[in-house]
Design a protein around this nucleic acid. Structure first.
Lengths: 201, 201
DNA sequence: GAACGTAGATCGAACGTTCATTCTACCCAC
DNA sequence: GTGGGTAGAATGAACGTTCGATCTACGTTC
């Protein structure tokens, strides 16, 4: 075993394997896709055996499901932190967009997997990402902005897609390698554009 | 055969088969995805044999490639028509958005396939849709709008994603069955939002 | 502290299925 | 009879999954 001697509890040991499987799967699912990733690929790159994979996960789909829920939960709690740290809708929205951009640049595979993949194709039972909790939280943030008079009154979905749609497309372009600049340098302009489109008066 | 007796030249006959394969493949690729569609599925639903499929296409990927190029060409020529029929950037952009919305509602599978699918995963050699001709034409339209003073001067990519990003997200929501209204009813508001974000002064 | 028992963790060969592709035979218009 | 179309069984590779063997850590008993 290659683990250091200091961390030696069995739980750590086990979780290490499980986590290595998840990390590897995320990297592969995000880069080449779920269907182009075989369990042998995961086995090889995570340096575990097939048996170990099936010890921790019921099947291949369960790996994808665990990743999905892990990422959705992370996004959801990050949004909570952002809402707690900011009050005005303008600064809240800007922080959300900054978080998305930053995560795209630091963990592109995760962003690819969570935003880009067609989850329904390999997880038929899973709720589509657009109906998931994080998305709903953002819509609620926009609606509250309307109630406070910070955002013009309009259809909530149109307001939300207007505010963040441009940024989402920039993220897609970045992940496709089409954008010729870092995402961070787009933040100011993209956010101000989105805000200008929905801001009151 | 179920084809009418009137259309009887061999070419028509052949093209009929070829087209039936393409139509069926588009429907299946768009609804359940490329990897969840087997050639047997296409064979069954198109009512042809495996041999016929391989007579018209080199392999499965070639079917996807033919569909991709067909749809890209269609979009490209539609954009040309729109640009010929409208001069001002405002009316051009609005017509483009109307076309996207209308196509999404009349041919959702085609839109799903062309906008949503991760083509790189099953057509490694294919240029990503965001680098393809139609996308470039829209960017050029926006840049011309800047040169004419109709659109504020800013980074072309940011302007384009701002102008159409919201609509693209609405299309995604619609295709995911999350939007509770017809796309057509969003056109006015979504377009005005996008335009307000980038319009000069 | 040595021997034993147990349960969880790990391993990888083997299995059965699915799938894209190939191949050979047949049909029919000219 | 020739050749473009058509048919569908045969092929072989790849894949997800199963299963029994092995290993390891640790509590229990003497």
């Amino acid at each position: 075993m290659q683990t250091a001697a200091s961390t030696s509890t069995p739980l750590d040991f086990c979780e290490d394997r499980r986590q290595r499987i998840l990390d590897t799967a995320l990297r592969l699912f995000g880069s080449v896709g779920y269907f182009n990733t075989s369990l042998q690929d995961i086995r090889r790159e995570a340096d575990v055996s097939i048996g170990t994979i099936y010890h921790y996960f019921q099947n291949k789909e369960a790996i994808a499901g665990a990743l999905y829920q892990e990422l959705v939960a992370m996004m959801s709690s990050t949004l909570d932190s952002i809402f707690a740290a900011h009050d005005a809708t303008h600064s809240r929205g800007r922080a959300v967009m900054a978080f998305f951009f930053e995560m795209t640049e630091t963990a592109p595979e995760a962003m690819h997997y969570i935003l880009y993949a067609r989850h329904q194709e390999f997880m038929p039972a899973q709720v589509p990402i657009c109906s998931a909790e994080p998305f709903a939280k953002i819509v609620r943030m926009v609606v509250r902005g309307m109630e406070r008079g910070e955002i013009r009154t309009m259809h909530p979905m149109i307001a939300t897609t207007t505010l963040f749609g441009g940024a989402m497309r920039l993220i897609h372009l970045y992940l496709d390698g089409v954008l010729d600049m870092p995402l961070g340098s787009c933040l100011e302009e993209s956010w101000e554009c989105g805000w200008r489109a929905v801001a009151a008066d």
